[in-house]
Simulated scan of single mutants.
Amino acid sequence: MTDPHRGVLYPDRLPRFTRLPPGEAAAELVEWYWIPQWELPDGVESRQALLPYPAANLAVEPDGVTLWGVTTRAGERVLRGSGWAVGALLRPAALLRLSAAPADLADRHAVLGEPALQAAVAAAMPDPHAAAGIVEAWIVDRVGELTSEARLANAMAGLLMTDPTILRLDDAAARLRVSARTLQRLAHRSVGLPPAAMIRRRRLQEAAQRVRDDPEATMAEIAADLGYADQAHLANDFRTVLGLTPSDYRGAH
């Protein structure tokens, strides 16, 4: 499985956190389930900066069920008191059926009227495996049979987010044997971001992890290894999306 802390900018500040793979029935619909649980003293806050995957999330919490669209910038979640969430990082094939317009959900969310799902998950907590199983059954039932377009969307997202040799839209289009225009339209309909933005997100996540985990690596080395034109382009991506420089991020650890 992918590094469970990839996309989490300060993993040492996490509450109790469980990440679970999907079952066989949901393997084409969910990347993984994420389940934080926390119990904080009065007046104490836990702040966690995130650089999420370019994907939507279904989140079940004590107060309801929410479909969160893809994000374009780093964000922050502030935890207080006690609570939990059971989330599913959705693959494009699932989002195609759960939202009529994924691009309209970018940096936004939609509250879903699913009280039965919320009640069932709440009853299963604090058992993360049982709660994830309930969410999985709901997603599988709601999505139904996958189309060829849905499977192509999954293949596109998997390629853009895991293959370090894919640096341009044309690279991905050639690998998938479709036109660049087809890939652009598919990303708009099934993710809500252009393919180029997905590639940039992957490289920035990899860069953040390298900056954090490899203190001996220079910024120039990291930039070169990840396909950036030069160190300045890496620094610009950090500032634009994360709001700080690579050196400032390294210094925070």
Rank of each mutant, 00 (worst) to 15 (best):
T165Y: 10
H188G: 06
R181F: 13
R200F: 06
V191S: 05
V143L: 05
L98Q: 03
V111S: 12
R151L: 13
P128G: 07
G133V: 01
L96P: 02
L146M: 07
N154I: 02
S148P: 10
H188V: 04
A122M: 03
A132D: 05
A174C: 03
A155S: 14
L117S: 05
V178C: 10
A110T: 11
D171L: 02
A157M: 14
D104T: 07
P128M: 09
D104V: 13
L112I: 02
H109T: 11
L117T: 06
V121E: 00
L193A: 12
L98M: 11
P102M: 07
R97I: 02
W138Y: 15
A94T: 01
R108A: 14
L186G: 02
L160Y: 08
A155L: 09
A131S: 05
V121T: 06
L152G: 02
A131D: 01
A187S: 15
L160N: 03
E206C: 11
V135C: 05
L105D: 08
D171N: 08
D107E: 06
V191A: 04
N154H: 09
L176I: 11
N154P: 02
R210M: 11
D104A: 15
R185G: 07
M161C: 09
A172W: 06
P195K: 12
R142Q: 08
A106H: 04
G113A: 09
R142E: 12
D163P: 03
G192C: 02
L160V: 09
G113R: 13
D171Y: 02
D141W: 06
D171T: 02
H109E: 14
D170I: 12
M125H: 13
R210A: 14
L95M: 12
A132Y: 07
A131G: 08
D104P: 01
R168Q: 12
